[in-house]
Design a protein around this nucleic acid. Structure first.
Length: 248
DNA sequence: AATCTATCCAACCGCCTGATG
DNA sequence: CCATCAGGCGGTTGGATAGAT
């Protein structure tokens, strides 16, 4: 019935890998290939379970792994793919040569996700949400929209423009809206918002591309943050009590 | 200099799916 | 068909490090 039992849990080492263990694993795989992860640790002389070996190899030791900071293009791809695939990290990793699902997942959770939320973009649905947007920005734009001041502001507000529509490289709309031809003007428009994100919008990407802070969402992208290019899912613009994100 | 807090990321855990006997 | 397993995946943890107080 079934297969023979998996490697016994007792006596197997856990925790960080030592250079010696890494070397044993690399040498074994170079000689014999990955093959059967269950039998690999024993054959390679490692006191680890196969799962741990597989993880160490696929996430760290594999020779084709790319190291270092994610490029703008890679981050762009991650955000686009995530808006389509959701948390399918392996599927996203399959489209980013040299990057592992674990690495992408970590990067998303520690960097991209937080940044999107500060900018008022729901990292799950990739739509704009006023209740997530940095409150200091709203204060400068329209204090009536501060969460708690206006009952309507507490409701979930979405813009019709999907986030990914702003971030497709080569797309006319993306360039029209996002590319900053007049950086100084853009900076001046955003100056004084009091948010680390908004007062330094290009810091992260300026060396890497000619994009502005493409991830900043409809309210702050491009030299002109007037939102004239955007439509709303609801009739926000027709109701004076719901005027949303007028330029300062 | 010491302590606290935030951030990063390698590694583990538990679950799911398809393969195997 | 069923029980069991290996492999794979996403969520989470916790140690290391950096930065702030």
């Amino acid at each position: 019935m079934g297969r023979t039992p998996c490697c016994e849990k007792n006596g197997l080492k856990k925790g960080p890998w030592t250079p010696d263990e890494d070397q044993k694993l690399i040498e074994y795989i170079h000689k014999n290939g990955c093959g059967n992860w269950r039998t690999l640790p024993k054959n390679a002389g490692l006191q680890r379970c196969g799962k741990s070996c597989r993880l160490r190899w696929t996430n760290y030791l594999r020779p084709d792994i790319k190291r270092g900071r994610f490029s703008f293009e890679e981050e762009d791809t991650i955000i686009q793919l995530h808006s389509i695939l959701g948390n399918k990290w392996s599927a996203i990793a399959a489209r980013l040569p040299g990057r592992t699902d674990n690495e992408i997942k970590n990067y998303w959770n520690t960097k991209i996700r937080k940044r999107l939320m500060r900018m008022g973009i729901d990292p799950v649905t990739h739509t704009f949400r006023l209740d997530l947007l940095d409150q200091s920005l709203i204060q400068m734009i329209n204090p009536e929209l501060i969460i708690g001041n206006n009952p309507q502001s507490q409701s979930f507000i979405q813009m019709q423009t999907p986030f990914r529509d702003l971030t497709i490289p080569g797309d006319n709309q993306a360039h029209q809206v996002v590319q900053y031809d007049d950086v100084e003007n853009f900076r001046q428009n955003l100056a004084g918002f009091g948010s680390d994100v908004l007062s330094n919008p290009m810091e992260d990407y300026a060396p890497l591309s000619n994009y502005g802070y493409y991830g900043s969402g409809p309210s702050v992208v491009g030299p002109d943050p007037s939102l004239e290019n955007f439509s709303f899912q609801s009739d926000l613009r027709q109701d004076p009590n719901k005027v949303l994100l007028e330029p300062p």
